[in-house]
Simulated scan of single mutants.
Amino acid sequence: MGYTPGSALGKEGSGRAEPVGIQIRRTRVGIGREEPHKEKRKREEIEAERERKKEKNLMEEFGSRQKSQWRSRRVVVKFYESKSSS
């Protein structure tokens, strides 16, 4: 077939010179799938990130509600102050 040990593959010899490495899998999942514990960890990280974003949004909403309540109270106080001074 034209193969000589130590030389590269291909018509001009520009291909791989070393054999493709093997990876021993300890699980029975198919090719292209991660190890189950790695997939689980990745899902947990994604879920944790979603929770952090959700908490951040809730805190921002809470802060804006507090500000608007404070402003409305200030308007009422200012109204009564102006009413009493008249």
Rank of each mutant, 00 (worst) to 15 (best):
K38Q: 08
K38F: 09
K38P: 01
K38N: 13
E39K: 04
E39C: 04
E39T: 03
K40Y: 14
K40F: 15
K40M: 14
R41K: 14
R41C: 15
K42D: 00
K42A: 04
K42S: 05
K42H: 07
R43T: 12
R43Q: 11
R43W: 05
R43I: 09
E44C: 02
E44N: 03
E44W: 07
E44M: 02
E44I: 04
E45H: 12
E45I: 12
E45K: 09
E45Y: 10
E45M: 11
I46D: 00
I46Y: 04
I46M: 00
I46V: 06
I46G: 01
E47I: 04
E47K: 03
E47G: 03
E47W: 06
E47H: 04
E47Y: 04
E47S: 07
A48I: 02
A48C: 05
E49Y: 02
E49N: 01
E49G: 07
E49P: 02
E49F: 02
R50W: 02
R50Q: 07
R50V: 01
R50D: 00
R50P: 00
E51W: 11
E51R: 13
E51M: 13
E51S: 09
E51K: 13
E51V: 11
E51C: 08
R52D: 08
R52E: 06
R52H: 02
R52M: 06
R52W: 03
R52F: 08
K53V: 07
K53L: 05
K53F: 03
K54W: 13
K54R: 15
K54I: 10
K54A: 10
E55L: 09
E55G: 06
K56H: 13
K56M: 08
K56R: 15
K56A: 12
K56C: 09
K56I: 08
K56N: 15
K56S: 11
N57T: 10
N57R: 10
N57Q: 10
N57F: 11
N57L: 13
N57M: 12
N57G: 11
N57C: 09
L58D: 11
L58T: 09
L58Y: 07
L58M: 12
L58R: 07
M59N: 12
M59S: 12
M59Y: 15
M59P: 12
E60Y: 14
E60S: 14
E60D: 14
E60M: 14
E60H: 15
E61M: 04
E61D: 12
E61Q: 09
F62I: 13
F62G: 07
F62V: 08
F62L: 14
G63F: 12
G63W: 11
G63S: 11
G63V: 11
G63Y: 09
S64W: 08
S64I: 10
S64Q: 04
S64D: 05
S64P: 04
S64M: 10
R65Q: 01
R65C: 03
R65H: 08
R65E: 01
R65I: 06
R65S: 04
Q66H: 09
Q66E: 08
Q66V: 11
Q66C: 08
K67Y: 00
K67P: 00
K67R: 00
K67I: 05
S68M: 12
S68V: 13
S68R: 15
S68N: 15
S68W: 15
Q69C: 05
Q69V: 01
Q69T: 00
Q69F: 03
W70Q: 11
W70Y: 14
W70C: 03
W70N: 09
W70E: 13
W70R: 13
